[in-house]
């Protein structure tokens, strides 16, 4: 049976920008949702006076702010901090709270590299490609990387980030580096696909020959690419373009150009968002 959670506190006049999650929040329930959704990215950097002041002054929840400050002062840890917020609203059931605490303990036990990678992965998933690329590069530059598997995964995701930005040459480079570390066949497949996307056909064939790629692997890649093209034909974006094209086919020239402009504007906005480092 479902529940109804009566909203607590006020709605903030000035939202709090949570840099770690790239989002602004205005209510305590939004904070709870944000914390729950990004559990694996949480670290002690959220336990600061800024959030306590926001909760006290903007949301009017003085008691909660006081409790959170006490948690910070007594150094009770991330789990206690998050639990305090969740309990004040009743956002999670007791069972969910126990699960959350267990997950948080696991997150706290993870290395800095793993946590930073989770953050970069989050940016990639949310199409913030430029920021994701910066974060992955920062990890590679700043952290001591001892685990080949994790290092390989970081290179792989960096390759994916560049491929989404259509920088297939860079993508190929990092996919190759990923394979060298993690020996994951998927990383190798992506490397070859990235080569396919930016090299002229003859250069691609030459590269595949030099790499001594088994014929069945090359064939499987071609099939995969073919399937991707088919999937794209049925995607919502393609359907949208088909709708726009219909205007032209039916002779509605003005409407065609208006619709086309609207679609391109949306694509431009999407691209700008993904490439923004702000």
């Amino acid at each position: 049976m479902g529940r109804m959670l009566i909203c607590c506190g006020k709605k903030a006049e000035t939202p709090l920008y949570m840099k770690e999650f790239q989002i602004s929040v205005s209510t305590i329930e939004e904070i709870c949702y944000c914390l729950k959704k990004n559990l694996h990215m949480l670290d002690k950097s959220i336990m600061k006076e800024q959030i306590c002041s926001f909760i006290e002054q903007q949301l009017g929840m003085e008691t909660l702010a006081k409790q959170l400050r006490a948690v910070i002062e007594k150094q009770e840890g991330l789990s206690a901090f998050v639990r305090c917020i969740m309990k004040s609203v009743g956002y999670l059931s007791e069972e969910e709270l126990l699960y959350l605490e267990a997950e948080l303990k696991e997150v706290e036990g993870k290395s800095n590299v793993v946590r930073r990678k989770a953050k970069a992965d989050f940016l990639l998933e949310h199409k913030k490609y430029a920021k994701a690329a910066v974060e992955y590069n920062n990890i590679l530059r700043e952290e001591i990387l001892e685990d080949d598997k994790i290092t390989g995964d970081i290179y792989h995701n960096l390759g994916t980030t560049y491929s989404r930005m259509f920088f297939f040459d860079k993508a190929a480079k990092y996919y190759n580096m990923a394979y060298e570390k993690n020996k994951d066949e998927e990383s190798y497949a992506c490397y070859l696909l990235a080569l396919h996307m930016y090299l002229p056909k003859e250069d691609y064939v030459k590269a595949v020959t030099e790499e001594m790629v088994p014929e069945e692997t090359a064939l499987a890649l071609e099939q995969r690419l073919g399937q991707a093209l088919l999937d794209e034909k049925e995607s919502s974006k393609r359907n949208r373009m088909n709708e726009v094209t219909k205007y032209r086919q039916l002779g509605y020239v003005q409407e065609y150009y208006w619709a086309l402009e609207k679609v391109f504007d949306e694509y431009k906005q999407e691209y700008r968002r993904s490439m923004s480092e702000g």
């Binding site: 479902g2 529940r3 109804m4 959670l5 909203c7 329930e29």
Partner: peptide
């Protein structure tokens, strides 16, 4: 007038 967050409810 109150505001609430539904949790698994599609009926008030």
């Amino acid at each position: 007038s109150i505001e609430f967050v539904p949790d698994g409810e599609r009926e008030v």
